[in-house]
Simulated assay, not measured.
Amino acid sequence: MLSYQHIYHAGNAADLHKHALLAWMLDYLTGKDKPLSYIETHAGRGLYDLGSDAARRTGEAQAGIGRAEAAGWLDTGHPLMQALAAIRARHGASFYAGSPLIARHFLRPEDSAHLAELHPAEYAALAEAKPGATLHRRDGFELARALTPPTPRRGLMLVDPSYEVKADYAAIPGFLREIARKWNVGVLVLWYPKLADGRQAGMIDKLTSDFADALVSEVDFPPARPGHGMVGSGMFVINPPWGLADEAARLSALYVT
Rank of each mutant, 00 (worst) to 15 (best):
K206G: 05
A212W: 03
P241E: 04
A249F: 03
D210L: 09
G243M: 12
P222T: 12
W242S: 05
M203C: 11
F236G: 00
M235A: 01
L207Y: 05
D210I: 09
A249V: 10
L207D: 12
A245R: 09
W242K: 13
E218F: 07
D220P: 01
G243S: 11
A248M: 08
G243R: 15
A214N: 13
F221I: 10
L207H: 08
I204N: 03
A212N: 06
P222C: 04
V231W: 00
P241C: 09
K206C: 08
S217F: 05
P223I: 15
M203K: 09
S209Q: 13
S209A: 15
D213G: 12
A212V: 15
I238N: 08
L244D: 12
P226H: 03
W242A: 08
G229A: 07
D213L: 10
V237E: 04
L244W: 08
A248L: 00
D205P: 00
S217Q: 07
F221W: 03
M203L: 12
P226E: 12
F211V: 13
A249N: 06
R225G: 01
A214V: 14
H228A: 13
D213F: 04
G232S: 07
P226F: 05
D220R: 14
G232A: 01
A214M: 07
A212S: 13
G243D: 11
D213Y: 02
E218Q: 11
W242I: 14
D220I: 13
L207F: 08
F221R: 00
V219L: 02
V237W: 02
T208G: 04
G227F: 13
G232W: 06
R225A: 11
A212Y: 09
I238W: 00
A214I: 12
L244K: 05
G229W: 01
S233D: 13
A212E: 13
V219I: 15
I204Y: 01
R225V: 14
G227E: 10
A248H: 02
M230Y: 04
E247V: 15
D205L: 08
D220H: 09
W242T: 14
E247F: 01
W242G: 01
G234R: 02
P226C: 06
M230A: 01
M203P: 12
D213A: 14
D213P: 05
T208L: 05
F236L: 11
S217N: 06
N239Y: 04
A212K: 15
P226R: 10
L215W: 07
E218D: 12
L215N: 01
W242Q: 11
P241V: 11
R225K: 13
P222S: 10
L244Q: 09
N239W: 00
G234E: 02
G243K: 10
V237S: 02
F211E: 07
M235W: 01
